[in-house]
Amino acid sequence: MWQYIIKRILGLIPLLLVISFVIFMFIHLIPGDPARLMAGKDATLEEVEEVRQSLGLHEPFVKQYISYMGNLLQGDLGYSIKSGAPVVDLILDRVMPTLGLTFLSIIWALVIGILIGVLSAVFRDKWPDRLGMLTAVSGISLPNFWLGLVLIQLFSVQLGLFPTGGDDAGWKSYILPSFALGAGIMAMIARFTRSSLVNTLKQEFIRTGRAKGLSGTSIVFGHALKNSLIPVVTVAGLQFGFLLGGSVVVETVFSFPGLGRLLIDSIQFRDYPVIQAEILFFSLQFILVNLLVDILYSYLNPKIRYD
């Protein structure tokens, strides 16, 4: 088991190297000149060139990449072109809000999703199932920025229950954005829980359990659910990337000071070091979560082989 994990982690290193180069190229391909943006509309060519020199952007591309990677390996992510702040600080400031938001989204999506899924499976093909699935599918069918805007109008402006945005009001500021962000995942989890549970309930050992006279609740929660959770966990994990993407939109709607908004700001400003670091961070996070999912998967289903 440990061998497997170590092997997987070592396998990540070349993948990350490839990704880092791709991102670096990718970012420099984006049209737009940070020196020009930094210098402003009324700058003369000479002034733009001075800014370019001071940012080190006049160097050839490969040289920039090598020096970037050199610094990266020493743990130095460089400085923001825009504000001059160390990139590490910028990202660390934003990590907790975004992670908090993402995890809260996943948690309530899991809770409600599994609940709806279980109900739908138990009442299969009856109206609770239909309603549950309709609710679930509705969740993935809403544009999340629209949902966010409507939530703000309703719960903040009309009812005054939650703040319109930001993260200064403690847990209250997380409610609406996490709802807008998690709706889609909730739907997927509900659907997977349902289909997976339906399959499990049909299997031999469940029937045996029933024959032995075990109660419905203990069959569903004691036996069937654990077996059905495997695909659910997988789906939840795979949705992590989806959440990070969604966070860009939701954080913009809710003026939430997280990584997603930082990314959009940095892209607008062509703040290369920040974009680079952030996307690397996103990829790393995503890969690690997938690894975690695989490990959890094998825990839930010991029959899986590591190869």
Binding site: G32, D33, L37
Partner: peptide, 8 residues
């Protein structure tokens, strides 16, 4: 997008 525009 602003960056692209200023480039153009």
């Amino acid at each position: 997008e602003e960056g692209t525009l200023s480039d153009e």
